[in-house]
Design a protein around this nucleic acid. Structure first.
Lengths: 224, 224
DNA sequence: CGTTAATTTGAGACCATTCAATTTCGGTGG
DNA sequence: CCACCGAAATTGAATGGTCTCAAATTAACG
C-alpha cells in the first residue's frame, strides 16, 4: 500500500535493531510472551507448529520485506514458531513502539492491517490446499504461490527463481511426506511443467502449472 | 475486548440492517466486490472455498456475535464464500461506515483488529489440523475448538451443546469424506469420549477428547 | 405420514506412508 | 583442486489409512 514520504519517514524512524540468524534457527517460539515484531530484511523464513507426535506443519513462507509476526502487536502469547529457512537478517521493533506509531498514523495502520489480512487470506487458501487437493495439486499450487509472490515483490524476477526450500520443507508445508514429495516433483518435471535442482526453480509452463495446482492469484490480493 | 460505554454506543449507532438467511444460503460469494461487513446475530454460519473438482473446503465455523467478513473493510474482492449453516440472522454494516468508525475510535479499532488476528490464528491451527493430523485427531480437535468457543461465548453453557453441524460439513471442515467421518465419529463414541445425535453433542470426557485431538486452547487467545 | 436429507454399512481400490537402502549434492578442509 | 563428509534427494517394496461406489437404514421436516 502506498505511503506518503512523511509516513515512510515515521516508519524508518522507529527504534529498531538488526539481527542475523542461521539456517533452521528459531526467531520465535510458541508459548513465549511477545515483545517485538520482526520484519524480514534478507533471506527466507517460515512459520510452523509442531503436533503431538513431533511432526511439523509449515504454515507460511516469507520473503524479504514481509512481517513475520505482526500479530504480536496485539496478541500476548505467540501461538506458533518462526524459523529461518536460509541465513537471514531481520529488523526487530519493540511492539509498543509499533503500536504507538499505528495509533498516530492512519495510513501506516491501514497498510499493516492490510498486510495481516492478506496473511489471513493466504492461511485460508492453505487450509484448502492441504484439505482438498491431492499431492500433485498441492505442490503445484505452492510453487505457483511462491513464484507469484516473488514476482510481485521483485518486478524484474524471471521465470527462474532462487529456491532454497528443501523437499522436506515442501512436504511439511503441503502435509505430505518427503518421499512422496520427491516422487510428485518428479512427475511435475516429467510433465515439463518445472525444472527444479540446485536451488533453482524454473517454471517451464506457467499456465499448465497453474492449471495443475488449481491456482488463481485472487487470494493474494495483489491488485489491492 | 472491553469497550467503554461511549464506544459501545458509537458501535450501536452505526447504520445497520438486519437480514435473515435460510440453511445453505450464500451470504457472500468469492470474486464479488465487497460492500458490507456482516456480524452474525443468531444461528451458525461458515466460510468455504470450492476447488476445481467441485469439492468444498470449510475454512471456519462462526457462532453468534462473530464477524463473518470483517476483512471486507479493507479488501476489495471477496476471496471466499460465506454460507449459512442454520437459519440465521445477520447485522449488515456498510464497510465505509465501519472504516470511518474504526478511524475515530482507537478502542473499537483494537477490538476489531484483535478479532481478525484471532481469526487468523484459528486458520493457522486449521492448516495444522488438516495437514498433520489423522482423521480421529482432526475431528476430536474440531469438536474441542467448537466446544471451547461456545463455552467462552456463553458462560453458562454445559458440556452439552447444540450441534446442528452435519457429518458432511464436519468432513468438509476436516478434509475427509462424509463416509470416513461417520466411521471415525463411531470410534469416538465407542471410546466413550462423546455422544452425538439429534443435533446434540455431549462431551463425556473432555480431557480424553482434548488428548485425542492434540488440542490446546492457546491459539484461541481467550485470555487476551 | 410421506418425502427427502442424513446417517450407516460393506467391500474393494488407491493414494500416500513407512522403512530402509542407495545415490547425489553441497560445503569444507587439506 | 580434490577428497571427504553430512545433508538432501532418490529408489524400492510393503503396508495402511482413507476414498469410492453403492445400497440400506434412520432421522428430520413440512
Amino acid at each position: 500500500m502506498p505511503l506518503s514520504d512523511e509516513d515512510k519517514r515515521a516508519v524508518a524512524d522507529l527504534p529498531w535493531q538488526r539481527r542475523a540468524y542461521g539456517r533452521e534457527a528459531y526467531l520465535a517460539r510458541e508459548g513465549e510472551p511477545t515483545k517485538v515484531c520482526s520484519l524480514l530484511v534478507q533471506g527466507l523464513a517460515f512459520r510452523q507448529k509442531l503436533v503431538s507426535d513431533g511432526s511439523r506443519q509449515i504454515i507460511s513462507f516469507h520473503i524479504r520485506g514481509e512481517f513475520l509476526d505482526l500479530q504480536n502487536c496485539l496478541l500476548k502469547i505467540a501461538d506458533h514458531n518462526v524459523q529461518a529457512l536460509t541465513r537471514c537478517t531481520v529488523a526487530i521493533v519493540n511492539k509498543e513502539a509499533l503500536a504507538q506509531l499505528i495509533g498516530e498514523r492512519p495510513a501506516v495502520r491501514r497498510a499493516m492491517w492490510f498486510d495481516s489480512l492478506v496473511d489471513s487470506s493466504i492461511f485460508r487458501e492453505w487450509v484448502v490446499n492441504v484439505g482438498r487437493r491431492d499431492a500433485r495439486q498441492r505442490i503445484a499450487h505452492l510453487l505457483c504461490e511462491l513464484a507469484a509472490r516473488l514476482k510481485a515483490a521483485d518486478q524484474n524476477e524471471m521465470p527462474i527463481y532462487d529456491f532454497p526450500i528443501t523437499q522436506e520443507q515442501i512436504a511439511d508445508a503441503t502435509g505430505l511426506t518427503a518421499v512422496h514429495t520427491n516422487r510428485t516433483l518428479q512427475t511435475l518435471r516429467k510433465s515439463g511443467l518445472i525444472s527444479l535442482s540446485a536451488s533453482k526453480l524454473v517454471i517451464l509452463d506457467w499456465d499448465a502449472l497453474a492449471e495443475a495446482g488449481d491456482f488463481s492469484e485472487r487470494y493474494l490480493h495483489h491488485s489491492v
